[in-house]
Structure formats: structure tokens, C-alpha cells
């Protein structure tokens, strides 16, 4: 149900690792529970972020939720399209709706994340 090539955090972020660079987004489960996304606040390029701390915020019409990074590192790219098209998060959470790209500072942190099966169980158990 959740893409198998991705890793997942308990705060419902996904991570795609490629050559030391992580692409980070939020899962369709999280997007669905928020509803229509209307605004996404992201930090600037160059910011340092630390695993499991907040780095941004996503808002729907009637809810606001903080976003936690699943990995530590330096933000090297921000999805600027989301500024004008926040609905990309609803329409394409795993592709066009990615949030940031991070140069990973410690690859071993990925071990603290879940694979798609574990994440599915995690979600089904009411989290």
C-alpha cells in the first residue's frame, strides 16, 4: 500500500535515499487526514536540520500540523512549486509533492526509520 522504496517515520514523513541525498515528503495517510492542503511553510535552502525535530508546517483549511524531519543534514533544495500549488501534496504526495532535499549527515540514522510494511502496520494500529 505504501511505496516499498521509501522509508517512513512515526510522524508520517517519507524519505527516499539516493547517493547520500534524501528526498523528504509526507505520506498520503497524513495528507488524507489533514484534508485539502492550503499552505506549506518550509525553511530556506542551507538550513541545518536534526532528525525528528520540526522543520516546517503544513496547513489545511481547518488544521495545522508541524512537519518533522526523518533525517539530519543540510537542506540543499526546497520544492518551490508548493508555494503556489499546495494542492500538489494532495494530488501527488510521493512525487510532485515532495518537500525538501537534504544532504544526509549520518546515513546510519536511516536505520531508525520504518519500511513500508512496518509503517502500514503502524498506521493500521491506530497511529
Amino acid at each position: 500500500m505504501y511505496p516499498e522504496n521509501l522509508k517512513y517515520s512515526e510522524e508520517h514523513e517519507w524519505l527516499l535515499e539516493d547517493n547520500g541525498i534524501a528526498t523528504i515528503g509526507i505520506t498520503d495517510f497524513a495528507v488524507d487526514s489533514l484534508g485539502d492542503i492550503v499552505f506549506i511553510e518550509l525553511p530556506d535552502k542551507g538550513a541545518q536540520i536534526k532528525q525528528f525535530t520540526t522543520f516546517g508546517e503544513v496547513e489545511s483549511v481547518k488544521a495545522a500540523s508541524e512537519i518533522y524531519t526523518p533525517i539530519s543534514g543540510e537542506i540543499i533544495e526546497v520544492n518551490e512549486k508548493l508555494e503556489t500549488e499546495p494542492e500538489l501534496l494532495n494530488n501527488s504526495p510521493y512525487e510532485e509533492g515532495w518537500l525538501i532535499k537534504v544532504k544526509i549527515s549520518d546515513l546510519s540514522e536511516i536505520e531508525k526509520l520504518m519500511n513500508s510494511k512496518d509503517y502500514e502496520n503502524f498506521v493500521n494500529n491506530g497511529n
Binding site: V38, F39, E59, S60, V61, K62, A63, A64
Partner: peptide, 9 residues
Amino acid sequence: LQTREQHIK
């Protein structure tokens, strides 16, 4: 823009 307001945030 109600997310700015106290009843949500």
C-alpha cells in the same frame, strides 16, 4: 486563513 486563529492553532 483560519489556521492563524486560536480555535485551530
